[in-house]
Simulated assay, not measured.
Amino acid sequence: MKEIKHFAWDASHLSEIDSIWINGSEDMETIIDMATQSLHHFGFAFLRNLCLDDKESTAARLTLLGENLGSIVSQSPRGELVEDVCDFSDVEAEDKRGYRSAGELTPHSDPSTLIALHCLQPAMTGGESYLVNVRSIHDHIAATDQTLLEELYKPFPHWRVEGSHGIAQAGPYETERPVFCENNGRVSCVYYRPFIELSAQTQQIELSETQVAALDLFDHFSRSDELALRTTLQKGETIIVHNRSVLHARTGYQDWPNAQDRRHLLRLWIDAPERFPVHPQHELGDLFA
Rank of each mutant, 00 (worst) to 15 (best):
M1K: 06
E3S: 15
F7N: 14
S12T: 07
S15I: 07
I20P: 04
W21L: 03
D27A: 10
M28W: 14
M34P: 09
M34W: 08
Q37P: 08
H40M: 10
H40Y: 12
A45E: 02
F46Q: 00
L47N: 01
L47W: 00
C51G: 02
K55T: 03
S57C: 09
A59M: 00
L64S: 14
L64Y: 12
L69Q: 01
L69W: 02
I72C: 02
P77T: 08
P77L: 04
P77Q: 09
E80M: 04
E83K: 06
D84H: 14
D87E: 08
E92A: 14
P111R: 07
I115H: 03
A116Y: 00
Q121A: 14
L131D: 03
V132H: 01
I137Q: 07
I141R: 02
D145M: 05
Q146A: 05
E151F: 01
Y153A: 03
P155Q: 06
E162M: 10
G163N: 03
H165I: 10
H165C: 06
R186V: 10
C189Y: 01
P194K: 06
Q201H: 13
Q211N: 02
S224E: 07
E226N: 15
T231P: 09
Q234I: 12
S245E: 06
L247R: 02
Y253H: 12
A259M: 14
R263Y: 04
L265R: 00
